[in-house]
Design a protein around this nucleic acid. Structure first.
Lengths: 127, 127
DNA sequence: CAGGATCCCCAAAGATACTG
DNA sequence: CAGTATCTTTGGGGATCCTG
């Protein structure tokens, strides 16, 4: 194999055999991640939380067009992925704070590399 | 603002106003890109093409489980995004070669940063 | 060999209304 | 304030057959 392992780094976390047995949807964790973050609200939510923690209605107001249901689902998904931490303050009325976990914060850096590429190459993914 | 612009780099290519008017699906080019690459076959296709150019049936055989229709659609999408270049050799029977464009090749590097994060944090995005 | 055309299915997105 | 419940719609994904 003449040791050419620097040109195309691992991307699917497998040695990429001759035949790639993409088991199911998330056979590759990166594909799974992209599928998750590729929905309508995940990235903007992550970015806002990257600025500072937010309460539910703060996010709801800052992200124009998102419904309560979609915001809830997005936050729950990010939470179950370990990207976002949810803190409930048992006050009346209830108050919930969302913040990035260390994992989530760590993700923003590689994400910004992709963002830079997108800006440079104008990958509009139009339509 | 005490010049703290290195902690959370731009990710949505906007200044992130108080209220983010996520126009539509691809209000943010990065979200659009993730949405595109988050489908079932785009990433594995990109990675294989990152190794070397492939012909259609080569890809069809190496990516287990993909149908002709899905492979065609995936390649067409990647092509219209400027990530993949399609070369038709007017032989009989016809032969078509797919290769990464320079943009596509340039994308693999930031992508691998995300992949590294996914591997480190095991973001399985399970279920 | 490399696809285009057609039909079907189901998971996920979204709107709206209601509640602890 | 911060959600859940219910319903409807959308479109990604796949199977199959046909063709330049």
């Amino acid at each position: 194999m003449s040791g050419g392992n620097t040109d195309v780094p691992l991307l699917v976390a497998t040695p990429l055999a001759e035949r790639v047995p993409v088991a199911e949807y998330g056979g590759c964790p990166v594909t799974g991640l992209f599928h998750r973050l590729g929905d309508k609200w995940s990235l903007v939510t992550l970015v806002l939380l990257g600025q500072r923690p937010h309460r539910f209605n703060e996010l709801h107001h800052r992200i124009e067009g998102v419904s309560q249901r979609m915001l809830t689902r997005t936050l729950r998904a990010l939470e179950s992925d370990g990207l976002v931490h949810r803190t409930v303050f048992p006050t009346v009325p209830p108050s919930v704070e969302y913040a990035l976990t260390s994992s989530g914060a760590a993700l923003l850096t590689p994400l910004s590399q992709v963002a830079q590429w997108a800006v440079d190459h104008r990958a509009s993914a139009e339509r």
